[in-house]
Design a protein around this nucleic acid. Structure first.
Length: 273
DNA sequence: ACTGGATCCTGACTGC
DNA sequence: TGCAGTCAGGATCCAG
């Protein structure tokens, strides 16, 4: 599943592909639902309209057409590819195709179907999938004071707070472990016991890790590729994620794995307290 | 009002 | 080789 850096990398790829603002000729649906039913008629109402921009909010992509647009969440295994991207042959998990007047076709593939395809007016108007979202991690609104306030008002492991989209969007399971490693805070530490200085470090390293990952084009694990089928490079920079038993890059102590809220966390028991 | 756990689904990998 | 069990990038729903 793509986290924010992967979604942003995909957005940039799509923006380039759709730079000449092509008109949507037609949608093709191989099925009626992903995780939820898709609003097929509503989406088809966008046929004949040009895509003006590809935007991102949280881990959602938004293809902005004229009277509304396509809201896309990739879930764990979703991807957008061009039809002529030959490295991956057409398959049973290609669920939606968007054909443009200029000959381009985009194909949505999602084996696990945890993704979402919805219609939205824009990214500003009320929408049930967007209304409850917290600030973007790279915006100033995600500040040490703000995060400190959130850590004090919750009673759960700091990692859960960091991954809570109502607190801050875009931080998934991989980057949460990486951020907390750099911050020197154990993922399982109860959030109300995180000091103001530590909360400030978590905020700073959230911005740092996500920025570095975006600059590297995201992380490729398993089946992630961007819209051109290219893989990101940040997975080569993981310091703790999926490295249980291997030496901490900083002190050599074996990395430990723990489960919080049903998700694996990785940390160095010596560097993180 | 919160919290953690189960859940949706398929595929890759492990160990017997 | 086969088969069962475990795990996977997310987010929602439900019980306690």
């Amino acid at each position: 599943m793509p986290e924010l850096p992967e979604v942003e990398s995909i957005r940039r790829g799509l923006e380039t592909l759709l730079a000449d603002k092509p008109v949507i000729r037609r949608f093709e649906f191989a099925r009626k639902d992903l995780r939820d039913p898709m609003p097929i008629r509503k989406l088809k109402s966008l046929e004949g309209q040009s895509v003006q921009a590809v935007l991102r909010r949280s881990k959602y992509l938004f293809f902005a057409a004229e009277t509304g647009g396509i809201l896309s969440h990739l879930g764990m295994t979703g991807s957008w590819r061009t039809a002529d991207e030959t490295r991956v042959p057409p398959g049973q998990h290609d669920h939606v195709r968007i054909e443009f007047e200029n000959g381009l076709s985009l194909i949505y593939r999602d084996p696990r179907r945890f993704g979402v395809l919805d219609w939205a007016k824009d990214l500003i108007s009320a929408h049930p999938r967007l209304d409850q979202l917290g600030p973007e991690p790279l915006e100033p609104e995600f500040s040490p004071d703000y995060f400190r306030m959130k850590t004090r008002s919750h009673h759960s492991p700091i990692k859960n707070i960091l991954m809570n989209a109502k607190v801050v969007v875009g931080v998934g399971n991989i980057y949460a472990s990486e951020i907390l490693f750099r911050s020197g805070v154990r993922p399982g530490r109860s959030s109300e016991r995180v000091t103001a200085a530590e909360a400030a470090r978590v905020v700073a390293f959230t911005k740092e890790v996500l920025s570095e990952a975006i600059a590297a084009g995201g992380s490729s694990i398993s089946d992630y590729v961007d819209a051109s089928g290219d893989q990101g490079g940040f997975q080569n920079h993981f310091r703790v994620y999926d490295r249980a038993g291997r030496p901490c890059p900083s002190c050599g102590t074996p990395i430990r794995r723990e489960v919080h809220a049903g998700r694996s966390s990785f940390f160095c028991p010596r560097c993180q307290r």
